[in-house]
Amino acid sequence: MTPPTARTWARRGHTPIIRVRGRSQRRFSIAALACYKQDERSRLIYRPKHHVDHKRGGRRSFTWTEYRDLLIAAHQQLGAPIVLVWDNLNVHRDCRLREFIDTHNWVTCYFLPAYAPDLNPVEGIWSLLRHSSQTNTAFTDPDHLMRALRHGLREIQYRNNLIDGCLAETGLTLATSRQQRQ
């Protein structure tokens, strides 16, 4: 992963060049749920994953069973029904995951329109993570990257005002107004 750069310097008239060691073939994925409930603090529930078999043609993202397990863990942690608003990632639309959601009355699922990352609060979480814990850092090994990811997510997790800000940035609200019949 090429680290995002926040600041650099060079002599006047010289273009700054930032050298980063060779690209890694290792893959990391993070699944996250930004959880909102009226009159309660916002929560962030996440699962990072290091795909160790990436070089041998293994899966490079979360499977539907891992998303299912994340939903079950979130339901247990929150102790309440879940209204899930998901983007159109192919695994989110997997028929086995849909079947799981349809057979459990504690989860309701809605999909965002295609190509609408500006309506997804979790995209704001990724932006915060990238610009906080990863800025100006060249990771020495996969464990260093994983520690930085977990640390950055933990910092966001305990600052619910950041999670609220990600929802506010979308323009969406928790309370939906119903049209009144006249």
Rank of each mutant, 00 (worst) to 15 (best):
A10G: 06
R23G: 10
W9N: 09
L44A: 03
T140N: 12
S127G: 15
Q157Y: 01
T170S: 01
L172D: 04
L149E: 01
T170E: 01
T173H: 11
S29G: 15
E169W: 09
F62E: 00
N161W: 14
S132C: 09
L71H: 07
L167G: 04
L84P: 02
P121M: 07
S24I: 04
Y115C: 11
M146V: 02
T5P: 00
M146A: 08
M146G: 00
Q77L: 14
R154T: 09
E123T: 00
L153K: 01
R12A: 13
R23F: 09
Q157M: 10
L128E: 08
I18D: 01
Q180K: 09
S132M: 04
F139N: 02
Q179L: 14
I101Y: 02
D164M: 08
P142C: 09
L84A: 06
G152Q: 02
W64N: 08
V107L: 04
S61E: 11
R26L: 07
G152F: 04
E40D: 08
A148E: 02
R150C: 13
L145G: 01
V91N: 02
A34E: 06
F100D: 03
C109D: 13
S29F: 00
E99Y: 07
T170G: 00
W9A: 12
T8I: 05
R43Y: 05
H151K: 15
T2N: 10
S127D: 13
L112F: 07
A116H: 10
H51M: 08
I17P: 04
W86T: 12
R59Q: 14
K55G: 03
K49Y: 06
I18H: 08
A168T: 14
N88A: 02
I45L: 15
W64K: 12
L119T: 05
G165D: 09
R98T: 07
D141W: 03
F100S: 01
R21L: 10
A148Y: 00
H51Y: 03
L112A: 03
F111Q: 06
N120E: 06
T65H: 15
E155S: 10
P142R: 05
I72R: 10
R23Y: 06
Q76D: 15
W126I: 01
V85A: 03
Q25N: 13
R11Q: 11
S177E: 09
V107D: 02
Y110L: 08
S29E: 01
A6I: 09
F28A: 03
T2V: 12
N161I: 13
D143N: 10
